[in-house]
Design a binder for these strands. Structure first.
Ligand SMILES: [Mn+2]
Ligand SMILES: [Mn+2]
Ligand SMILES: [Zn+2]
Ligand SMILES: [Zn+2]
Lengths: 143, 143
DNA sequence: TCAATAAAGGAGAATGATTCTCTTTTGATA
DNA sequence: TATCAAAAGAGAATCATTCTCCTTTATTGA
């Protein structure tokens, strides 16, 4: 997502285009792996040294409410943010708290078919998220 | 799970049997739907008026670490606890913050088969949890 | 271009769930 | 029944997040 796309999305949602909002969205995209508010703050302070903590939280909330980003929960008491908007699931290691995206259309179709056939009485499904918990085995972490 | 079962489990894990631990486990079981620490506290104070807040948190932590209960995350910044230990998934409504258990062996087998066939490079799967997000449509809540 | 103004940002205090520290009590063991 | 490590109690501390209040700014349309 480039700046122009970000601007367009903000306008679409009736949000004012501010340097802070653009910086925060860019930060999430750049930082990639589902950063915390604190990581975003640290990153942004390099170019916007005066941004307030509350601004970051308020912007994040506004972006979530307008569907420009998503919240991601983990086992820890710190919210994570995700600018990748295509339907996807997450690989998660509780040891390293690392989150990676997992895309699997075959899986999504399988789930759709399953729940279409076998509905859940008393419940209207809106979305299904898989938390795939385990350990990353690549070089950068044994966890 | 009855008191005797609880006692047995505590002994198995080398945990001392204390009135507080039994009360807290009983509370989670009795309260059922994935209570918060606060709800557990309120419930327990009826019979143990002097229990300390920190004790509840410490006991909950010990029970989680020893596999007697599980933590459940939601979109909110409050931990929920689950004494139902069989493999299951959760139905969740963000509006009401209600969590219900969802058991589906057919689904579990389907997922096992899928990931057995199609592994995830660089990742060793330990568990898969579905968060089924939507709205409850039964009498007790429209949410 | 500029004034009006609602929306957004800055600063720092407040909040609140959770954790920590320190002291006292208690369950398990022999 | 004494011993002692484990656990509980009390209350302060922590810290991610939210709130309040004031100032600044993006947008709009005259
Ligand atoms: Mn918190
Ligand atoms: Mn909190
Ligand atoms: Zn993601
Ligand atoms: Zn459950």
């Amino acid at each position: 997502m480039k700046i122009d796309e970000i601007r367009k999305k903000l306008i679409e949602k009736g949000l004012k285009i501010t340097p802070q909002r653009i910086a925060i969205l860019e930060a999430i995209i750049k930082l990639n792996n589902h950063p915390t508010a604190e990581l975003i703050l640290d990153y942004i302070r390099k170019t916007h040294p005066n941004i307030a903590t509350a601004t970051v939280y308020k912007v994040l909330e506004a972006l979530v409410e307008n569907g420009l980003i998503k919240k991601v929960q983990t086992e820890r008491d710190i919210m994570r943010y995700d600018a990748f908007l295509e339907k996807h699931h997450h690989l998660y290691s509780s040891e390293s708290d690392r989150i990676e995206d997992y895309l699997d259309d075959e899986l999504n179709e399988m789930l759709s078919r399953h729940f279409e056939k076998k509905g859940i009485p008393g419940f209207k499904i809106e979305d299904i998220k898989l938390q795939i918990i385990g350990k990353f085995t690549d070089k950068s972490s044994t966890k």
